[in-house]
Nucleic acid binder design. Structure first.
Lengths: 132, 132
DNA sequence: GGCTGCGCTAACTTTTGGTTAGCGCAATCT
DNA sequence: AGATTGCGCTAACCAAAAGTTAGCGCAGCC
């Protein structure tokens, strides 16, 4: 893309390829699918939320991680951050159009996994009892 | 589900909910969307592969992590592992039907992200130059 | 007038991920 | 013939990421 890169050997037709170690898409994918990134995007899909609202929605996330995660997503252009310099500060987060598109795909995956959990748990029991 | 569980407080209608800290679906989602889980599923979508074939495909993964990742996916019933006790050992991995369904959704997300990378990179430049 | 909530950030600890080395044997090069 | 590489791991160790705790300054509530 930029100038000097040899990281798409054998895949010249596709500009970006997650399977290549140095491809920037891998980093973005990690932001999106990371432990908290996915849940944050999922929660924001229903509408804009303030920081602590989001925090309560995403059960178990620490302030540090949520803040970090949101900054990464904002930098990648998936989330828009609107801070009002009032006191106490009010900061709203909402998905950008690109973020919505990503969140849709993500939610399709999330909901599918949720819906498959019985199968998954059954598979685990089989696996564990076979190995025991 | 099994017998004694009180982890879906306030969401009785949905059996599993990733947003709840203790929900087992969160763990499975992490296996699926984790750094290597996603790439492994993506690579296996094209067909069954041996351990080291997979390792070469997923650029940058260590043997330890790949092995670990595959075991988790196997336990969750997404990947089938077929080991032949020959020497040198031959171990083939392939997706289960459930794994295919998951991989399809995942690939939709992955390909969308790959296709959006120019926008993402542009957003990053904007963000970085604004903050500088 | 003391307490909580707001949205963070800095310092520290724990957990996780990653790296290196080795395993025993078979097929492949020299 | 002898050395070298590849196979699919695992154990031991080390670096990086995530989690935890504390604190910020002010506004509104009790």
């Amino acid at each position: 893309m930029t100038t000097t890169e040899g990281l798409t050997e054998g895949l010249e037709d596709l500009p970006f390829n997650v399977f290549a170690k140095a491809c920037p898409s891998r980093g973005t994918l990690e932001h999106v699918t990371g432990r908290w990134g996915g849940l944050a995007l999922g929660a924001l899909y229903e509408g804009s939320l303030r920081f602590n609202e989001l925090r309560r929605r995403v059960d178990g996330v620490s302030e540090k991680m949520l803040s970090q995660t949101l900054h990464a997503l904002e930098r990648d252009g998936l989330v828009h951050r609107e801070a009002q310099p009032t006191n106490p500060p009010r900061v709203d987060y909402e998905l950008t159009p690109l973020g919505r598109d990503v969140a849709e795909r993500l939610l399709a995956l999330i909901h599918f996994v949720e819906g498959s959990m019985e199968q998954v748990l059954a598979a685990r029991e089989r696996y564990d009892s076979a190995k025991a």
